[in-house]
Design a protein around this nucleic acid. Structure first.
Lengths: 368, 368
DNA sequence: TCTGGCACTCGGTAGACTTGAGTGCCAGGC
DNA sequence: GCCTGGCACTCAAGTCTACCGAGTGCCAGA
């Protein structure tokens, strides 16, 4: 008695998922667009006067009833306008919104940024979050490439104080890691250097998660330092293991939501880097670029939408850029911004990593 | 007609600043304590029933009139209770609050933390912000030691790709900095190593802000790499120059203030690391441990109080820990927490830096 | 000099009323 | 058979009023 009773609904129930009839789609689009702009429930007369909708408000009303029944819209209360549900936003994003291009001003802003930025990758990623959050006025997140597959290019031991040394390891992707080594006895610089050389000789080319078991050098002092260094590196647990994450413009969150409670809980999430990383990864892995409301199955972010774009170098996804905003976010602009910035970041990382056939680096290859 | 008219006010106008008469101080204390707890304006009858105040509410009222006239209290509106002004809080902090000790639970929490934490300084400082913000439920800030006076202990050039190398510099305080070097032509590993040795030989012992002018090695290729490295390091502008800052528990801000606008603006401040660093430094330099409201002369934080404690190693202030909360913060707990954590951080940094007479490090000395 | 008492103030709450945006439904027209 | 204008209805939000109560300032008396 439900679906077949309404002649306007296609008989094929699956068709609803693919495409609403044109008029309903236009009405949904009008509601979403209006609501994104005003944050106020949208009434039928507003919709009727929208370009793209050529029917009277009465007709709009009856269509809106159908849209509500199908879960695209809800009414906060009777005698109020409608607001989109997550499903409504999803349809809007999937079918009603163009891929979107940046406005000339934004385009210029991006170009300027990539002209000026230079130096270390970390710095660049960090600043990119600022750029993204300024472009969109949402909070931006950038996840840098993980160092899992990078190999060790160099190891060195530097003395700091009589019984304190530093193990410095350079990875093939340009990352540097270090570990303090506390020594039981004073050790000469020469021994430290030799220990470094010993480590270097045996560790170069391995991944940073490899075992640090290094054969004896024949000198007891040197071996002790080597062992201490291995131990120090063994309990890494930080820096290299977790992907780096940069957050830009957290203050924007307070603009996006007017409930303090929401701000608090979303900020709380952002503090948990691991959660954020896996969230972005998860969304990307599911082939999405937007996760709306509870689509990511993550309760505390139910009132948020997450826009994600990959940072790929030579077709390989090395990182991700993301935007965090309210579900009534400007998806078009957010998608365009994330996409462009992600792409250009990827290009940039590619350029500096490439420069010809790699001499022993594992993760880059020279094509393109 | 103002001051002499009230017989309860000391004739000596300066005396007011030093110490309110006992009764007024007790009343002020009661108001502040109550207000910190409830965030509601405090009426005379509440004060009258507080321990430490032995007079009737009528008397309290007349004293409160005086306290208001002298700027310690304000009335949000007639027929409301009083709330403390910044000056009121200041008097409370300076004269009415005990230095304060941590409760046993907190003490245990701190001990546990310092038992468990280990590894690199950055990691430790980072985690310390989490500890502080959990202890106090306010947002915590930790500023690490600056590298200004640290000297270079080692320089090394590592090849990453045919035309890409990395300059890695180790400072005497254990910090590591790096710069990507893009080379005009392919260079053999041997040349890179020799360039590193050349840099090492001439830069060790200098501060990282020194000029990177290094004499010619006699080999053109090597010199070119050395020059490129010097240039790369010249435009440092990041990492080493700005002190590192770690923020813990920004989400707590949203609990401290119920006006979203305030949260937004304070978060905005926290994004500007330089501002935060100079704010903390400034407060410390003025010999304060608390800056209330506008005392720091910083408009956007007018509704905040900042509690600061130094992190000293061997009597030298190397860093600072801070807490950011509403002016109606629990000063006693905040002061105690910041103090203890700052102190123990200092001890910890001292231990790992010391280990005997330094062999060439500039900033540490061996006395206890 | 303190205290109890008293009149007064005024923010906040609760209820009654109004307004207006918006709906659902229906009869009539193309 | 679908669309439209019209109409009665609903309900959140705003306005007005009255009232309550916490709190004050002031004063006379102990």
């Amino acid at each position: 008695m439900t679906a077949p009773a309404d002649p306007a609904v296609p008989i094929d129930a699956d068709a609803e998922e693919r495409a609403l009839n044109d008029r309903r789609a236009a009405i949904l689009e009008a509601v979403v667009t209006e609501y994104i702009g005003t944050a106020e429930p949208v009434g039928s007369s507003h919709v009727a006067s929208a370009p793209g909708v050529q029917v009277s408000s009465a007709t709009v009303r009856s269509e809106m009833v159908a849209l509500e029944r199908d879960g695209y819209l809800v009414q906060p209360h009777t005698s109020a306008g409608r607001i989109p549900t997550d499903k409504g936003y999803r349809f809007f994003v999937d079918h009603l919104t163009e891929p979107g291009v940046l406005g000339p001003t934004q385009h210029q802003q991006v170009s300027l940024f990539f002209d000026q930025v230079h130096g270390e990758m970390e710095t660049m990623l960090e600043r990119a979050t600022g750029l993204l959050s300024e472009l969109t006025s949402y909070t931006a997140v950038v996840v840098g490439p993980s160092h899992d597959s990078a190999t060790i290019r160099s190891a060195q031991v530097v003395g700091l104080a009589p019984r304190l040394a530093l193990l410095v390891v350079v990875l093939s992707d340009g990352a540097v890691d270090k570990r303090t080594i506390e020594l039981e006895a004073e050790v000469s610089d020469d021994v430290l250097t030799r220990a470094g050389a010993q480590l270097h000789a045996h560790m170069v080319g391995k991944t940073s998660s490899s075992s640090w078991a290094v054969p004896s050098s024949g000198n007891n002092d040197v071996d002790r330092v080597v062992a201490a260094a291995g131990t120090a590196f063994g309990l890494m647990e930080h820096s290299m293991e977790s992907d780096q994450i940069f957050v830009g413009g957290p203050a924007r969150l307070a603009q996006s939501f007017d409930a303090v409670e929401t701000v608090r809980s979303v900020l709380g999430i952002l503090e948990q880097q691991l959660v954020v990383v896996s969230l972005l990864r998860d969304v990307l892995n599911r082939g999405l670029s937007v996760a709306i409301g509870t689509e990511h199955g993550f309760e505390p972010l139910a009132s948020c939408a997450v826009v994600v774009a990959p940072v790929s170098v030579d077709g390989q996804e090395l990182g991700a850029v993301g935007l965090l905003g309210p579900t009534r976010m400007d998806y078009q602009r957010a998608l365009a911004s994330a996409h462009v910035v992600g792409e250009r970041l990827g290009q940039r990382l590619g350029e500096s990593g490439r420069s010809g056939a790699p001499a022993g680096t594992g993760s880059h290859d020279g094509r393109n």
